[in-house]
Amino acid sequence: MTDTGTPAESRPAPVTLRMIAEQVGVSVSTVSRVLNAGDAEALRWASAQTVARIREYAAARAYRPNPHAASLRTSRSSLIGVLVPRLQDFVLATVYEGIDEAATENGFSTFVTNSLDDPASRAVRTEMMLQRRVEGMIFGDARDDDALLADLAARGVPFVLVSRRSADHASVTCDDLLGGTLVGRRLLEAGRRDLAVLAGLPFASTAIERTRGAVRAFADAGLRVPKERIAWGPFDAAGGREAAEKLLATEPYPDAIFATNDFAAIGAMGVLRDRGLRVPDDISLIGYNDTPLAAELPIPLTTVHSPMHEMGRHGVNLLIDVLGGADPESVRLDPTLIVRESG
């Protein structure tokens, strides 16, 4: 039988939302919203002239929406599933506030649950959300090597990540490598030469990249941070206390401690106090995230400000792009070093 169709290699590549956006000069999210909206609703997102240009270009190039996203839209639940390690965690609670705020503005509701960073719990709770026909998911508990996310991507489930990165999945995070670098440079400028790190969870990109940034800054100055100066553990105050006790079990003590989470820094501050070590005279101490408590401590904590609320809002916008058939690029938000008395 003779195939009279056009050879696959000569067919034009299918048009994408990003191609339309670049041609018209608008964002991918604007294109997605216009093409998925009725005439009146489309004018919420763009002018009548821009709406016409988007639709004319899409029609001329025979744009076809992502079938999975389209099927979700026809049975709209208007529900976004959100999975976080712990909502009692100030950082993730703040990120979630941004998610819920942006979701409401875009006509969605959110359904959030805790995974406790347990792989089995994550899998069960993810399936529970999918059974409730969420339109897409936002994960705040991604792992560095994440089989669950790989499986969801293979199944065509729409999702994005916030707070933590994993592989090449679309994500919105703070530029944690830069944040760690800012910490390392600050300590070097203060004359510190022996760094210890309360690194956090070894499978979290936040912990990995913040630690890497600080260690690299010291390496660039010709100073090595030995492995025994890096303690991994939970991000909370109890985890910070335990890690600091290990680091200070023997002398000589480091002259600087970087905790990749403010609450871990607070736990470390308690250990330093108990040992009669002065902050920052004996040991400088720097945290990360700039939680409200950081500025109110007896010794105000130098820390890195992470745009947590903004991260959540960007995560919703990224997911809307995915639901519209786009393949959006990940977003890295800028950190800011907040210098106070501790380091």
Score class of each variant (00 low, 15 high):
P252C: 04
E242K: 11
E228D: 15
L293A: 05
R212L: 00
G287A: 13
K227F: 03
A231F: 01
R224C: 12
A256W: 03
V225M: 00
A295T: 09
D236T: 04
P234I: 05
M269N: 11
D220C: 09
A265L: 11
H305K: 15
V279P: 06
T211W: 07
A238T: 14
H305V: 02
P234F: 03
S284P: 03
A219Q: 15
E245M: 13
A238W: 06
V215C: 08
R229N: 06
A238R: 14
D262S: 06
H314S: 07
A214K: 01
P226W: 01
D282A: 12
V316K: 06
A231G: 07
R278M: 07
H305C: 07
H309C: 02
P300H: 14
T302P: 13
V271C: 09
R241W: 00
R275L: 15
G233L: 07
E251L: 08
L272Q: 11
A237F: 03
A294K: 04
I266V: 15
A244W: 07
P254N: 02
W232A: 02
L272S: 12
A249H: 08
R224D: 15
A268C: 15
D220L: 04
A256T: 04
E245F: 08
A217V: 10
F218C: 11
G312L: 02
D282Q: 11
G315L: 00
A217P: 11
R229E: 02
D262C: 10
V304F: 00
D274A: 15
F218P: 11
D282Y: 12
L297M: 10
V225E: 01
T291V: 14
L277D: 14
I266E: 10
R313W: 04
L301D: 10
R273N: 13
E228A: 14
P292W: 03
N289L: 02
A219L: 12
W232D: 09
V316F: 03
E296V: 11
M311H: 04
H305L: 14
G312D: 10
R241Y: 02
A219T: 13
F235W: 05
L297I: 11
A221H: 14
Y253G: 09
G267W: 02
H309L: 06
F218M: 14
L285G: 10
G270P: 12
V225P: 01
V279Y: 13
G233C: 12
P280F: 11
V316N: 03
P300K: 13
L247R: 09
A244D: 09
R229C: 08
Y253D: 08
V225C: 01
I230Y: 02
T211K: 12
A249D: 11
